Computed example of a mutant assay.
Amino acid sequence: MEWFMSMDVLLVLLAAGSIAIGAVTSLFIPIILIWLIVRYMRNGQGVKKWVERLKTRQTRSKNRV
């Protein structure tokens, strides 16, 4: 158990952990950004459809009067 507590082993474990955390983070951030962009684009299309529906409803109500 003494070899596990030596400074060299702890530094290697620290380096390996930081590399692993960096790899996960570097993969995670672009995935989140892409997801947010796709979601924003879908919401943009949804808003356009909603506005078009409102316009068609307004023209229909004008035609009725």
Rank of each mutant, 00 (worst) to 15 (best):
V38M: 00
I29G: 02
M41P: 04
V47F: 15
A20T: 01
Y40V: 09
R57M: 08
L10K: 13
Q58M: 14
R42A: 11
I37Q: 07
T59D: 15
L33G: 11
V12C: 05
G17S: 03
A23P: 05
M1T: 10
G46I: 10
V51S: 01
Q45N: 15
T25V: 04
K55T: 14
M1W: 06
K48Y: 05
G44V: 02
I37A: 13
A15S: 00
E52T: 11
V12R: 07
W3T: 07
G46T: 13
V65N: 09
L10P: 00
F28M: 04
L11Y: 02
I19M: 04
G44M: 08
I19H: 00
L14T: 07
V65A: 10
V24I: 00
L13Y: 11
S18L: 06
T59Y: 14
W50A: 14
R39F: 11
W50M: 10
W35T: 08
V9N: 13
G22K: 04
L54I: 06
L14V: 05
N43G: 04
M5W: 13
G46W: 11
K48A: 12
R42I: 09
A20D: 05
W50E: 10
R53V: 10
V38T: 08
M7L: 13
A20S: 00
I29N: 02
W3N: 02
T59H: 14
Q45T: 02
D8W: 12
L14Y: 01
S26C: 06
S18E: 07
M5G: 13
G46K: 15
K48P: 03
R53A: 14
N43H: 05
R60F: 11
S61L: 14
W35V: 00
R57Y: 07
T56K: 14
L13H: 13
M41F: 03
V24L: 04
L10I: 14
T59R: 14
F28E: 07
D8F: 03
V51P: 08
Y40H: 01
W35H: 02
E52V: 00
E52R: 11
V47W: 14
F28P: 07
L11C: 01
W35P: 03
L13N: 14
A20N: 00
W35S: 03
G46A: 15
I34Y: 04
W35Q: 09
P30Q: 06
S61F: 15
Y40G: 12
F4P: 02
L33C: 11
K55A: 13
L54T: 07
L27E: 00
V51Q: 12
V65G: 09
